[in-house]
């Protein structure tokens, strides 16, 4: 009796995650979709003017901006994260690993508002002084996000590299290859799906980041034409206006949320299921 009760209670607990996911989808879609019907899909997705109180709901510049900062983050954080993962798995001694790995993971614990704040105080003026423009820019945002995705890229790439069998390395070294030749001809290719997954999850992290981006991106309502231009992403659009929006304006923010949700789901799906992670 008790055993059955426990079993079904635990099952209910397990189903709660699905239920919450379902609720999130339903409520964001329920609020966000009507405007697509009213204003038109094309108007929202491809429109370039966001003036929600005047009936313009174009979020095209924000979609572009979200992708730009995400790729910017990947260009900065991807190679660097992979390098760190390679160093950790192939070069560092056991004791070094015991120190470095937790230290790198602690980076993930720094709150995004702190990254954003330090970005405003140090990175933005730096960019303004050395490269010109307002400083609040694609470049500054990419730099901050690049650092923010490092823990994700490092830890998942590291796991992928560690799961490459030792015999692969030994075989290559025995044939006279140097350590680096072994790594980039044997180890990295064997771990490539896991590394790819780490990049995609890093992108998911970057495209979903909000508070840090609001603080350093400048939030201008147009498509950036250079890396020094300010921009506004999908996430910042929601966070900047949600507190006071009402009526169609609020629905417009939910439409922004719908687009973001769809992009995120696609990225997660690719990272978790589309790529067969080498295990």
């Amino acid at each position: 009796m008790k055993e059955y009760f426990v079993k079904y209670m635990l099952m209910a607990f397990a189903l709660s995650s699905l239920f919450f996911l379902f609720l999130i989808f339903i409520f964001i879609l329920f609020e966000g979709l009507p405007l697509f019907h009213k204003a038109g899909l094309k108007h929202i997705i491809l429109g370039s003017k966001w003036a929600p109180t005047k009936g313009s709901f174009g979020i095209f510049p924000m979609i572009i901006s979200s992708f730009l900062v995400t790729f910017g983050a990947l260009i900065i954080g991807g190679p660097m994260g992979l390098s760190c993962a390679i160093y950790l798995s192939e070069y560092s001694g056991k004791r070094m690993k015991m120190f470095l790995k937790p230290a790198l993971e602690l980076l993930a614990g720094i709150p995004s508002v702190v990254y954003g704040f330090l970005g405003v105080v140090y990175i933005v003026p730096l960019v303004r002084d050395y490269f010109g423009g307002p400083g609040f820019s694609l470049l500054s945002t990419s730099l901050i996000l690049g650092v923010m995705i490092l823990p994700t890229v490092i830890s998942i790439s590291f796991d992928a590299l560690m799961s490459v069998p030792k015999t692969y390395r030994e075989g290559s070294l025995a044939m006279g290859a140097t350590k680096w030749q072994t790594i980039y001809k044997v180890v990295v290719p064997s771990a490539k799906s896991g590394i790819l997954a780490s990049f995609i999850l890093g992108m998911g992290r970057a495209i979903g980041e909000t508070m840090a981006v609001i603080m350093v991106a400048g939030n201008a309502l147009r498509t950036p034409l250079s890396i020094l231009d300010p921009l506004r992403t999908l996430t910042s659009n929601i966070a900047l206006e949600l507190a006071y929006a009402s009526g169609d304006h609020r629905l417009g923010l939910f439409s922004t949320g719908v687009v973001l949700l769809i992009i995120i789901m696609i990225l997660n799906y690719i990272a978790n299921f589309g790529i067969k992670k080498g295990s």
Binding site: T210, L261, A271
Partner: peptide
């Protein structure tokens, strides 16, 4: 299916939790 739910929930950015 449950694992898919958990993974998806883990990937949702905090602003969408805020929106929800």
């Amino acid at each position: 299916v449950i694992r898919f739910g958990v993974e998806s929930l883990a990937g949702i950015p905090s602003i969408l939790f805020g929106l929800f």
